[in-house]
Simulated scan of single mutants.
Amino acid sequence: MTSMDMEPKPAEAVPRLVSALRTIRPRPNAADELTQDLIDLLKQEGLQPGDRIPSVTALAGRFAVAPQTIREALRRLQALGLLDFRHGSGVYVREPLARVIVSNPYTGQLDPDVLLDLIDARLLIEPHLACLAVVRGGPDAIAELERILDLADQSLEGQDETLSDLNLDFHRAIARLSGNKVLGQTMDSLLDLYAAEQMMILQVYDNRERDAREHRAVLTAIRGGRPDLAAEQMREHLTGVRTVVEARLRAH
């Protein structure tokens, strides 16, 4: 990566996007609504700290969704400190639910500094996950990463939401491939809780082709069985994003 590559490129939309950080109010998505519905149900049941909540299967039937969808919503509540997962026992209420509202955690202003904090948090985690993924990177796992990037390439000229989802799917897939369940869940929580910030990072960064190239470089290192290089490529990728985003935010 050259110093020229690190220079922020002009983008007409950046001033408008940065200004929007102070007023944007993202609409709750399906995951937000299910999470709030879960909270409402637990409140209706009168559950208190220490009480066990219904099983995943029971909740999936109640809301007519897949068990995995319920698990993802429960992980979001765990990340908020509201639930306690006890291996072999179940999921328990950890904090009082009476005043909890999580359907749209971004009802106020988006803080530009949080964008940088989010990238910093990912920088601490994802290079290590990429390194671990090399050890477990069998043909099927690598084919899945390739499939995600192929879809992302086809969406380079498409909607921001579609491309953002595919890019994050790539990072989530590497986290799963690492085999570290704790860090994998941490990544899921970060990306779920800060979905609005992730979208804003994509829009402020505004370099889809470079993003695609750097994702391919990470995949190439994983496919080639080079853990140190995979970690380095992931670190350079996230550092480059941070450099550009910070420069553009500070300039406006």
Rank of each mutant, 00 (worst) to 15 (best):
P10D: 12
P10W: 10
A11M: 12
A11V: 07
E12L: 14
E12G: 05
A13W: 09
P15S: 15
R16T: 06
R16G: 12
L17C: 07
V18E: 07
S19E: 13
A20D: 13
L21F: 04
R22V: 03
R22N: 05
R22L: 05
T23G: 09
I24L: 11
I24M: 15
P26E: 08
P26M: 12
P28H: 07
P28I: 03
A31T: 08
A31D: 13
A31H: 06
D32Q: 06
D32S: 09
E33L: 15
E33K: 14
L34V: 02
T35P: 00
Q36Y: 01
D37E: 10
D37N: 14
L38V: 11
L38R: 03
L38T: 12
I39M: 11
I39V: 15
L41P: 06
L41D: 15
L41V: 09
L42R: 14
L42F: 15
K43T: 08
K43M: 14
E45A: 09
E45F: 11
E45G: 09
E45S: 12
G46C: 10
L47D: 03
L47T: 00
G50N: 12
D51S: 07
D51V: 02
D51K: 10
D51P: 03
D51E: 07
R52E: 10
R52M: 12
I53Q: 02
I53T: 01
I53A: 03
I53L: 02
P54M: 01
P54K: 01
P54A: 04
P54I: 10
S55D: 06
V56H: 01
V56S: 00
T57A: 14
T57D: 05
A58N: 09
A58R: 09
A58K: 13
L59V: 04
A60D: 05
A60W: 03
R62A: 04
R62T: 03
F63R: 04
F63G: 02
F63W: 02
